[in-house]
Every structure is written in C-alpha cells, then in structure tokens.
C-alpha cells in the first residue's frame, strides 16, 4: 500500500466519526521505483491532506517532506521538491504492519502490502 492510498483510506467502524487519518504501524517498508510524472503531481497536490501525508511518510522513515503544506508554487519550479513528493507518494510501500483507527485503536493488519479493512459483524 502506497501513501496516496493511505491518504484516502479511513476507518469506517460503526460510531466512529473521525476515522481519518489511520495511524501506521511499520514492520516492513519496501521501495519500488516509478517514473515521475510532473503533471500528475501538480494535479494531485491540492487533493492531498498534507498533514496526514507528511506524518505518514515520517512514520515510514522518510523525513524529507516539510511538515506544513508548501506553497503550490514549488510545484512549478522546485524539481527537488517534486522528486521527494513523488517518492513519498508513489514509491514507498507499507509491506507489513498495521493501520490503526485513530478513534478506537482497532488495528487493521497489513500483510504482503494489502491492508485488511474488513469489519467484524458488531462493527458494521
């Protein structure tokens, strides 16, 4: 699971009002190279929840992103920023670990890169 996917997933347990962002517990991170696409990065940037994203990247051991969302102008000129943004968004994979509901602490295990978000009967 990549951090772009993490930026959308949310805990949907019955009664939970704020299931986003899911905390990450890391056992294993893998990196896979993907070709960089500047236009895609510019389009997706305004839709990213930056705090959730940069916190997640840090948890995964990647500390190169600013904590606050940078001014969108960096997307035009700053190749260094684009490279880091791309790397954190699309090249880091949580391979083993867990996602944790921020409200209840319920753990959703991640095995072989696949988070298991299935709810128990009493959570639906």
């Amino acid at each position: 699971m990549r951090l772009l996917t993490h930026n959308m997933l949310s805990s949907n347990i019955k009664g939970v009002t704020k299931g986003f962002p899911l905390k990450i517990e890391v056992e294993k991170v893998v990196e896979k190279q993907v070709e960089i696409n500047h236009d895609f990065l510019r389009n997706i940037f305004p839709k990213i929840d930056w705090k959730a994203f940069s916190d997640a990247a840090r948890t995964m051991g990647y500390v190169e992103l600013p904590e606050q969302a940078p001014d969108p102008s960096v997307l035009e000129s700053d190749l260094d920023f684009l490279t880091k943004f791309h790397h954190a968004l699309l090249e880091l994979h949580l391979e083993e670990g867990a996602l944790v509901c921020p409200e209840t602490g319920r753990k959703f295990p991640v095995n072989k890169g696949i988070p298991n978000m299935l709810l128990h009967e009493d959570e639906v």
């Binding site: 949310s10 988070p115 299935l118 709810l119």
Partner: peptide, 20 residues
C-alpha cells in the same frame, strides 16, 4: 504492474474525498 490492493467490503468502504 504496480497496483495497490485493499481488502474491504465495498458496502463498508471508508474513504476520504474524491481523489479517485
């Protein structure tokens, strides 16, 4: 191909925004 997979019941999918 690099594809992300998520195990989930679509009826109970928790999702933020319209990034897709």
């Amino acid at each position: 191909l690099d594809i992300d997979f998520v195990q989930c019941d679509i009826s109970n999918l928790g999702w933020r925004g319209q990034i897709v």
